[in-house]
Design a protein around this nucleic acid. Sequence first.
DNA 1: TGATTATATGTCAGGAATGACATATATTAT
DNA 2: ATAATATATGTCATTCCTGACATATAATCA
Lengths: 110, 110
Amino acid sequence: MNNTKRKRLESKGWKIGTASEFLNLSPEEAAYVDLKLALSRSLQQTRQEKKMTQEQLAKLLKSSQSRIAKMEAGDPSVSLDLLVRSLLVLGTSRKGLARMLSERRTALVA
Amino acid sequence: MNNTKRKRLESKGWKIGTASEFLNLSPEEAAYVDLKLALSRSLQQTRQEKKMTQEQLAKLLKSSQSRIAKMEAGDPSVSLDLLVRSLLVLGTSRKGLARMLSERRTALVA
DNA sequence: TGATTATATGTCAGGAATGACATATATTAT
DNA sequence: ATAATATATGTCATTCCTGACATATAATCA
């Protein structure tokens, strides 16, 4: 997976285009990253729709504000598990998740 | 999350009904478990459709046969991350994943 | 403006997931 | 029936993710 390289790139603020355009990412790796980014965005959106602060969500999830911030920022240190569990505590259904996954577009510009 | 309790129950071979029927699982926890079980099944199905052995998939995923077996068995020790990455290396698309998530039915009988 | 509240970023000890391995049990051939 | 192949189950050291905390940087408001 080479987390380190991705982390390094991202820390430079160079998110350009789709994750699949990062050099040296296999298609599956790219798909995996895209997927997490899609969920990150959905998480932030859902939380904001519910007019919750990161602090409040953190409490609900028994996590911490910093974790939530990292999740929403698409930090590679956060797992799919945590992303999904966050969405679930916000009341997202399986169908809802499915919709988030199929959402078109992933390109991000810094 | 109380993995231990679930592990203990499951190890007894008592998977009955939906995960949500396990005592003391909050709705989100139950949804999370159901979700993983759904992906477990999809994984096995997909692998078999591709006429692959667990060993072959393991190699493709750079994992091990035992991990694959555990995944397909719905072992609580495996993460969503690994499940999803497995499906991705098998060529599952985001849409495909979404379909797997919304699949009806979760009840399992031992 | 400065105070308050929200979010971002960095670090780290502790806990959870991992691949590897051994080995048991099915399943399928011959 | 027995060999060969596939899958299941258990254990463990290493690796990765976690919550917690400190602190920086925004955003909102008096």
